[in-house]
């Protein structure tokens, strides 16, 4: 099982083509570091405009009509390329667009599932199951709430729970009579936030290594903080504060306050 290496992949080239990322490891950490390492390299062409949205994965199968409306033109223009491809799959069932998404996400999903502890054979199958769901459920994708990567991430997370933990994820039900406060995010609000939202991935790259390390262990390896503390051989409070600082920084970037 790989340690939590984060390497920047090249983003789309000028023609908007998604080249498969070339995995060139920048630096390996000293083998003496028992915790594994995060290796990061700033790529000059890496720019991902992360679409701001309120991307909670609520109970699937929701029949909210807003989910099937075409997003506004301005919103579409600001979307990253993967979100645009997904919207094309949603509106025209374009297989070519889907294939490009598959090329982009399949190795990433395999890496993610593997880091979460799925055996290799299983992670392949779960990845294909996730991508099949991306295809089947594209009609439900709403770019006002999440960009494509967030959406795919939540599908992968849910299927991991379903299949490998054989449990049911505890979804919030948008029709729950006890639900307090709506989840309405108006398109205008989202547009304003899209202007403010810049390069979340850049922010991840600029995290100090100790913070990126903890973030990776918690997010990608799915470790509890206590387990991360054991793995890194540092106090639990240190893990908590590093994670808190990392999340504060990233949420600040998302809010641009």
């Amino acid at each position: 099982m790989k340690n939590g290496l984060i390497v920047i992949s090249p983003g789309p080239n000028e023609r908007g083509q998604l080249a498969l990322p070339v995995t060139t490891r920048a630096r390996y950490c000293d083998q003496k570091n028992s915790s594994g390492c995060i290796s990061r390299r700033r790529s000059p062409v890496f720019r991902v405009r992360v679409k701001k949205g309120a991307g909670v994965q609520t109970a699937p199968g929701s029949t909210d009509p807003a989910l099937t409306q075409r997003p506004g033109k301005a919103l579409h223009r600001r979307s990253d390329i993967r979100t645009k491809l997904l919207l094309r799959v949603k509106s025209t069932r374009c297989e070519q667009a889907f294939n490009r998404l598959y090329e982009y996400y399949s190795p990433r999903l395999c890496a993610y599932l593997r880091q979460k502890g799925a055996p290799d054979r299983i992670s392949q199958e779960v990845m294909q199951d996730v991508m099949a769901r991306v295809w089947e459920k594209a009609a439900q994708f709403d770019p006002r709430y999440a960009n494509a990567s967030t959406w795919v991430f939540t599908i992968a997370r849910n299927r991991f729970v379903d299949i490998l933990r054989k449990e049911q994820r505890s979804f919030i039900d948008p029709d729950d009579p006890l639900l307090v406060g709506g989840d309405c995010v108006t398109a205008d609000e989202n547009l304003a936030k899209a202007d403010n939202r810049r390069e979340l991935s850049e922010a991840i790259h600029s995290l100090p290594e100790p913070q990126a390390e903890v973030l990776s262990l918690v997010y990608l390896n799915g470790l509890k903080q206590r387990e991360a503390a054991e793995k890194l051989d540092i106090p639990l409070n240190t893990v908590k504060s590093r994670l808190r600082l990392a999340l504060e920084k990233l949420r600040t970037v998302m809010e641009n306050n």
Partner: peptide, 16 residues
């Protein structure tokens, strides 16, 4: 939702 968005961004940069 914010944490899910960070998850999506990490999916973008994960080592492949």
């Amino acid at each position: 939702r914010d944490f899910e968005e960070i998850g999506g961004a990490l999916l973008d940069v994960i080592d492949v």
